[in-house]
């Protein structure tokens, strides 16, 4: 089975811990940047993909440079902090930016994938609807839209309008 998914690379980083300065998550959509402060005081930051297919779980600095540039554009004080840790992980980019939670044409094979940037925060709903789909062997109305065949039918859930070029952002 080939899926409408490409495997990409996303990095994130944290600064050294500092006393509380930010009490919520801030995202900067146009600049591809998000930041929040952990309870330990580290600023947790991330943004763009490195931009090519990858399973390597290692990123390169220019992407972080770009992400942090956007960060400084929004919060200039970040410039005086130091980047403590970085990491890179695998990102299952679906072709319309939304996940697939569905049965497949193979009996007993179910899909819950293509989460792109957002698979952590969606875990409860993703798990619940997936469990329903498996247990009942049919999708729940909440995940009906996240079907695999939406690409064939054109019922895409494209929040950003990037279409099939997931690496462009």
């Amino acid at each position: 089975m080939t899926l409408p998914i490409e495997t990409h690379l996303l990095q994130a980083c944290v600064s050294e811990p500092v006393k509380p300065v930010l009490d919520s998550v801030v995202t900067f959509g146009a600049g591809h940047f998000y930041v929040s402060q952990s309870d330990k005081g580290e600023m947790v930051m991330g943004g763009d993909l490195d931009g090519y297919n990858s399973y390597a779980q290692r990123g390169n600095l220019p992407t972080l440079q770009h992400v942090l540039t956007e960060g400084i554009a929004m919060m200039p004080f970040l410039s005086k902090l130091k980047m403590l840790r970085t990491w890179g992980g695998i990102m299952d980019m679906s072709m319309d930016g939304s996940p697939i939670i569905d049965k497949t044409h193979i009996e007993g094979l179910y899909l819950n994938c293509g989460w792109c940037y957002g698979g952590f925060k969606a875990t409860p709903a993703s798990g619940w609807t997936f469990a329903h789909t498996i247990a009942q062997d049919r999708v729940h109305e909440l995940n009906a839209g996240y079907s695999l065949n939406r690409f064939s039918t054109g019922h895409l859930i494209d929040e950003k309008g990037l279409g099939t070029k997931t690496w462009i952002s």
Partner: peptide, 14 residues
């Protein structure tokens, strides 16, 4: 949160 962090971030422009 009160216990968090080490130093204090300057919130001025660098």
């Amino acid at each position: 949160r009160k216990a968090a962090g080490l130093g204090v971030a300057s919130i001025k422009h660098d």
